[in-house]
Each structure stands twice: as C-alpha cells, then as structure tokens.
Amino acid sequence: MNANRRQSKPARALLHLAARLRRMRRALLLAIPYLLLLGWLLSGGGKGDLRPDELYAARETPVWKAPDREHWFGTTAGGADLFELSRRAMAGSVSVAVLAVSLGIGLALLAVSLSVFDERESRFDWIDRLARALGAIPGLVALAILTGGGGGGLGLVIAGLAMVVALPLCPVLTAWFREGEAGFDILAAGVAGLSRREIVLGRVLPPVLRRLPGVFAALVPAAVLAEMALSFLGFAGGRLSVGAMVARGQDYLIEAPWMAIYPGLFATAVVLVLSLLGWRVSVALRTGPLPLVLQSP
C-alpha cells in the first residue's frame, strides 16, 4: 500500500520488536504463574531437619492432630505440620526435577553436537543407535535399579534422571538438526563458502535452541512424578519426599487418613499445574510435537 513511502529505520526497528513481543505474549504471560509457583514452593524457612523415619516412627501415644484451622493438612505422628512438610518435600522434588532435566538436556545437546559437527555424517551414528536400543528399557526400571541398589542418594537420583531424560532426547535433537539442515538457506550458505561449523552454529543451532524451553517445560512434571515414584517405592534414602510420606502414611490410612491422602493431593495439584502450564508454554513457544521427546523412533 505504501510503496513509495518508507518509515524511518528506528521506527521500523521498534515496530519489529513490538511485533515480536506481541507474538510471544502468550509465552510471556504463562511464564509468570510458573515462576510464581516455583517461588512459593521454594520459599519458607526450614523447620529443622526432618526425616521420614522420625516423622513416622511408631509411638506409644501418637500425638497426631486432625486437620483444623491451625494445621490445614493435619500433623504427622510426631506432631509436625503436614502442610509445611508437603511444601518442602514438593520444593525438593521440583528442584531435583529441574536440575535433572537441565542436566539431561545439556547432556543430550553435547552428545548430539558430536555428530552434527562431523563432516562425515556417519561417524557418530552409534549414539543414535545406542539410544534407540536402550529405549527398550523402561526408564523407571533403570532408575529403580540405580537408586534402589545404590542406597537412594541424591546424586544418584539426579544423575539417573538426567540420563533417562538425555537418552530419548538424542534422536529427537538429531532429527531437529537434520530438519534444520535441509533448508534452502543452508544450501545457499554452503555455496557461499561458510564452513560447516559456522553454518551449524549460526543457522541450524538457534532454531533448535529456541525449541528447548518448551521441551524443558514439558519434561519437568514427568521428572517430578518419576522422583516421587522412586521415593514411594522406598528408594529415596533418608530424604524427605512426598512419595515417602504417602508410602508411610498408608500404614495409618484407617486411623489418620490425612497423612497419606493430603500430601498426595497436594502433589497432584502441583504436578497438574506444572503440566498444564508446561504444555501451554511449549505450545506458545511452538516447540513442535511434544510426545516425540518420549517416543522411540
């Protein structure tokens, strides 16, 4: 329409930025409740070092209290407030999950970058093939063996979760790299004389990196559930975790049902919120088909 009238450069740059922010408005809006939830979980001072063994130690005269206005979720057998405990336990689980998922994504990127910078594209194919073969082992089986046999230390849990996240992610990242390399602009860049390293770092890598926050947001709830599953099975060492609380509380299910049910419901609510938010974030950031992350190709 305005073929012969051009806006000034700064005006155009501002409009461009405004358009970009407007396109990302959904993702930006979704990040706020996400961060608020994480902040609330992680806030609050520690009330001493509470371990599940102490929490649920058998007592002659149990001092637990039913849920009332002072203790929203009731108390444990030892008298500790269940709401605060659940919150700290969830904070721990979410932190572990966030750490493990970040580590896993980093590991997968590292592994894939080996093959992507390779001139002869078949030298590091074995990474892909290994990932595909090991995909036959269910992740929780490997995690259970690793943490259960090793005593349930935090390092094992994080390392195990990171490996379980990284392994199926490798073929997916490889596919994204290959997809990015198939564009016409890459061909043009190659013809123009750019080296493979420049092409990959400058043109192929940025779209892949742009999709990673969505992958992260989608994987965190799954990692939280995995960590809770492991602690439910009893492979958490002495750590405070919602899974351990639910497992121990099952013994008191008839007399004091709040000990097993309320932490479970709290954890359900947090995972639900994280999962819904994470899905919307990944849709807003246009990550692409999410379940591919967990798909065996």
Binding site: A222, L225, F232, I261, G264, L265, V271, L276, W279
Partner: peptide, 20 residues
C-alpha cells in the same frame, strides 16, 4: 485437551486412595 495434558496425575491421588 484437559485429560491429554495431565499424564500420570492419577498416580498420586489414586495410590493413596486405592491402596486401602
């Protein structure tokens, strides 16, 4: 959409209740 985006949330709630 709601059901599809909440994987495994059944786990914690159901375990606590059904284990009875």
């Amino acid at each position: 959409a709601a059901f599809a985006c909440t994987p495994g949330f059944w786990f914690v709630g159901l375990v606590a209740i059904y284990s009875y």
